[in-house]
Each structure stands twice: as C-alpha cells, then as structure tokens.
Design a protein around this nucleic acid. Structure first.
Ligand SMILES: [Mn+2]
Ligand SMILES: [Mn+2]
Ligand SMILES: [Mn+2]
Ligand SMILES: [Mn+2]
Lengths: 221, 221
DNA sequence: AAATTATTTTAGGCAAATCTAAATTTTATT
DNA sequence: AATAAAATTTAGATTTGCCTAAAATAATTT
C-alpha cells in the first residue's frame, strides 16, 4: 500500500493537477514551462508515471491524472497548504515568503506527521493565500476566490491572494496600500482598457489597470 | 556563501560527526555500516566531499571533518534535534517515534525556518532524548547523559534516553516499568557478569543485565 | 492540398549516487 | 619476514533525472 514517490515525481503530479484546474488535458510544453524544465525531460517522466498508473498518457495526446494520481496530488497540496498555514500562523512568516519553504516541506513523507499537524492547527480550511486545504481524505471546500476582474459592481470583497510575488508587483501593492485582507468594492469597469475603479474602505475611489486586477484574487464578504 | 548540499552529502557529514564523538578518525567501514551502504560507495563520496573541503581524507587513512564540515554537521544536528523537540512538545509524538521523521526534516534548507522554529519553541537546550541542541552559531551545552553502567552507586539519576528502539528492548523496558523520566539509583554492581541492581522510587530493588544497562542513558538529578 | 510552423518524441549523453567484483593496501598472525 | 586476513579502493554497471540535437507528428497558414 501507498508507494513512495520521489520529489521529482511528486512535483510533476502536483503541477499536472494544478494545470488541470483550467484545462482538461495537459500539454508537454505547459508542464515543461511550469516545472522549469525541458519538454524532452517531461516526456521521459510522463512515460515513467504512466507505468506507475498515476496518469493517462498517449504520445502527442497530452496527459490527465488517473484517480490514483489525483489522490496523490491532493495529498501533496494538503501538505503544502497546511505547512504554509503553520508557517504564517505559528512561526510568523509573511504570506509572501512561505511558498518556497512549503515547496520543500510538502515532500516529507510521514502521514502521521501531517495529520497531527492538521489537528495542532485546528483543522484550518484555507491556507494563507485563500486556497482551500484538502482534509485527510482529500475533500476540501470549494474555491472561494475569484479574480477581481470578475467581481460584480458594488459587491464588498476582501483580497485573499495575489497571482505573483514579484518585487515589482509588491512595490505597486504597497504604494496603492493593497494587501491580503484589504476590503474593497468595484465601482466602475471601463471597457476601453479593462481598467477598473475600486474603492477601499471610505477612501476616495481610484483606478487600477487590467494587468493589476488580473493578479488580484478576492472573495465576497 | 553557504553552498547547497544534497541529502546524501548531509547524511554523510552528520554520520562522520557522530562517529567522531567516540573516535578521532573515521573508517570507511564504520561509515558504510552507519549509513547502511557499501564501503565502495563511501569511498566515492569521501572523494567528493574532500573536493568540497568538508573533510580531510587520504586513501586508506580514514577521515576527519574540517572546521567547515563540523559547522555543517552542527547545523544538521541542530535541525534534527529542534524538529524532534517540536514533534514531541507540540505535536504529541512519542519520543520513540520522532527519529525517522526528523531524519527527513533535518534536510529542509531554510535557515530562517529553523531560527523561527527555535524561537517558537523557546530555545530548547535538549531534545527529547536528552541530547543538547546547538544554537544558531553552533554552540551547545555539554552532553549531560552518561551510560547507566558508569553511574556511581547511590546517585539519584533520571533515564533520559535509550540506545536503541528495537521492539524487543521496548518490550523489556515496559515490563520493567522503565521509561524516559524514570528516577532510579544504582545499589550494587556485580563484577562477575556486570549486572547491576537498581532501585526505582521506593519499590524493591531489582537486577538488570549488562546488556540492558549499556543501552540506558541517565543524567544525575 | 501543400508548405510552414509549432509541438512532441526519440536518440544519445551526462552527473549523482549507488552496487558487485576484482585489485590493492594495510594490519595481524604465524 | 612471510603469509593470511581485513580493510579499502578501483573498475565497470545501473538507475534516476536531466540535457541538446535531430526526427517525427500535429496544427496552422498560405
Ligand atoms: Mn515541491
Ligand atoms: Mn498557498
Ligand atoms: Mn537525514
Ligand atoms: Mn534525538
């Protein structure tokens, strides 16, 4: 029961899982880009993971996780998000500095460890970026985040994650005084450049670009 | 600054450090046994670690850590013991089930993580087995444990670790009602078979074999 | 439909970490 | 000192995960 997979294999499975959230079938190139590796290396790994029955793969046809592959992916996502929660809630990390560390911690194999950590943290349902945490049987709450672009007018919402951690984005967010937890609503949408006008608390409304809105994720409050 | 070492390299460095606690220079065979690998593999790795200046090695001469190697070893030992403390104190693991998990956790690379964990745990000085935890600059308390064989007569002491976790040993300890934290003193030593008579609390004294005494470590209280 | 372009796979190679078997060196014993 | 035994190293393979360059296939454009 429950084989042991390498860090590389786990990273592939998790990446496929994430890409499958938006497309049905995952291409070799998409995986190579996500994993910062080359398409030829991806093909090699796909052949191996197929023999391990973690995914469906036919040459040139792209790839989809099997039920078993999805189960493995959910286990890794669970570990990743629980560790992120731990780092922020207990160790006082900032939400923008936990990802890389969790990228390593998610590969610690002990199931007992992660279940005890879950209990210690009091079974959190969302990680510091607002993403739902699968429970020990792989179930999780529906994604509550939507892109700021898709938030209807005059609907109060709260920023719960950002789609990038680049220094340039963080600089802009700092200047605009937007951070995780900021309450806002959209007052106007401009079709010409897809910029939107938002209002934070009772301050005067201001405009943000399409590019910025696209990396902001919010949930209704 | 501060290069990045593989899990394998780190395990070798830590093993050499531990063996050097009892002998000055570490043999290829001793390392192979400790790491459950073959002497030929050890030789390969020693050549590599030598080029990385972590140890002094001349063919057939055995091996000793350099200052840099020792520093790396202390960092790994620090991580191992802090994680063990975390697992026992926060996650309610038993002291006898933390070693394997810590064996993985000790290779998580973030220095910030380990320093924040240290602070969160309130800078513990000893791990659940009574072994001292190096601080962030590599300093640690002197080893306070001594072998039960070496405890003088009529000196109150407390069991703080056992030299093995075999099921057979644990069965015997359970039967004798000895566990981590048990207070005892040695009442008699028998030269013939090196068995010793000990007394736990106010119960009647009883005898334990040399083999058992040799795997029990205590500190004076 | 043919040609061009993009995607994906194959072929061949490399570095890390391991192994077995054979050769070498050191240590212990006669 | 010579021999036997033990420890260690070398030689040659293997597996994993990655790479580049070339070939094959699929998708798009003319
Ligand atoms: Mn990872
Ligand atoms: Mn997250
Ligand atoms: Mn280890
Ligand atoms: Mn310990």
């Amino acid at each position: 029961m429950s084989a042991n997979f390498s860090v590389s294999e786990e990273n592939y499975i998790k990446a496929i899982y994430h890409i499958q959230q938006s497309v049905d079938t995952v291409s070799t190139n998409a995986l190579a880009e996500q994993l910062k590796t080359k398409p030829a290396s991806v093909t090699d790994m796909l052949k191996k993971l197929k023999t391990k029955k973690l995914l469906h793969y036919e040459p040139y046809q792209g790839v989809r996780l099997t039920a078993e592959g999805r189960k493995l992916a959910l286990g890794i996502v669970r570990k990743h998000r629980l560790w992120e929660f731990f780092l922020v809630e207990k160790l006082q990390f900032g939400w923008d500095e936990v990802h890389e560390v969790a990228e390593e911690l998610e590969h610690i194999s002990s199931k007992k460890l992660i279940d005890k950590l879950d209990a210690y943290l009091d079974f959190p349902r969302f990680d510091p970026h607002g993403d739902p945490i699968p429970d020990s049987s792989g179930r999780m709450a529906a994604q509550q985040q939507i892109n700021l672009i898709d938030l209807p007018l005059n609907t109060p919402a709260e920023v719960c994650s950002v789609g990038s951690q680049s220094a340039e984005l963080l600089e802009l967010l700092t200047h605009k005084q937007i951070s995780i937890g900021t309450r806002l609503e959209v007052k106007k949408q401009f079709g010409f450049d897809h910029s939107i006008e938002i209002r934070v608390k009772n301050q005067p409304a201001f405009t943000i670009s399409q590019q910025l809105a696209q990396v902001l994720f919010v949930k209704r409050v």
